[in-house]
Amino acid sequence: MDAGARGVEPVSFRTYHEVEGRDRSGLGEQVAGQRARVTNRLRTVARTIAVMSGKGGVGKSYIASALALGMAARLRGGVGLLDADLNSPTASRLLGARGPLRVDADGVHPAVVQPNVKVMSMDLLLDEGQPISWRQPAGERFVWRGLLETGALRELLGDVAWQSLEVLIVDLPPGGDRLSDLFELVPQLTGAIVVTIPSEESRASVERSIRTAQELGVPLLGIVENMSGYACDTCGRTRPLFDGRAGTALAEMFGIPLLGSVPFHPVNDQRPQLELPASVADAVMASVMIAQPPQVPPS
């Protein structure tokens, strides 16, 4: 029922844009300020790359962690690893990172696992074995959880005292959503390394995430095929672990270089040995260093 039908005089008033006074809350400016914090923080980071996959369980965090060590061994400058998998963080554990993390006026200082390797992960902030638990009211959580997770990623990028880095590696959770968030926050993203295993299931899943990256305009630096086989202790031959050749198939399908294949990694004591074959580390390194990140106009 409109105002006239209820016997009430219709009210005439100006709209938001017609009222010229300042919007004191300035929510748009506050959000822009959040983005600016990330931009300013990453001014000292020469290259930011994402390690992504459409499928879970392909060893993405292993590849990202081993890549951090491999790049650090090849570069003079620092390498950072941000574990952006908020719900199932593992990269910091693979690298043996430990807290507590120092907080000062410059921000939260990442864990240092080697003189030139810095790590930040939600795993360093949570109680042992506990999942991430948001303290807000439980009602209708699905509405705001995505906002909080994006905000957490923003803070892990922008509030960490990364200082000067040659490369910041962002280990993304499976799927394309977080890549989209990352690319919004870091439009100067150098590119993404895609991780798959040889199976057909992985090929189909990773194909989707590659298409997501292409739709976003994220440069795809190359594909790493993990668990491409295992070396038999008896005969010394490398035998396949999975049916399929997803790495090659995806590389051909999208015209992206296959940067290498990584056999099933041997276990050394409690932790897997974090070392990529030199040819793979060299190929990834080359693809990262020659990549031309998207041109972003100065803010």
């Binding site: 902030l125 949570l126 948001w134 303290r135 957490a152």
Partner: peptide
């Protein structure tokens, strides 16, 4: 945001 929204480890920071 993380510190006020997440139940984190007491001695993490």
């Amino acid at each position: 945001l993380i510190r006020t929204s997440v139940s984190g480890r007491a001695d993490a920071l």
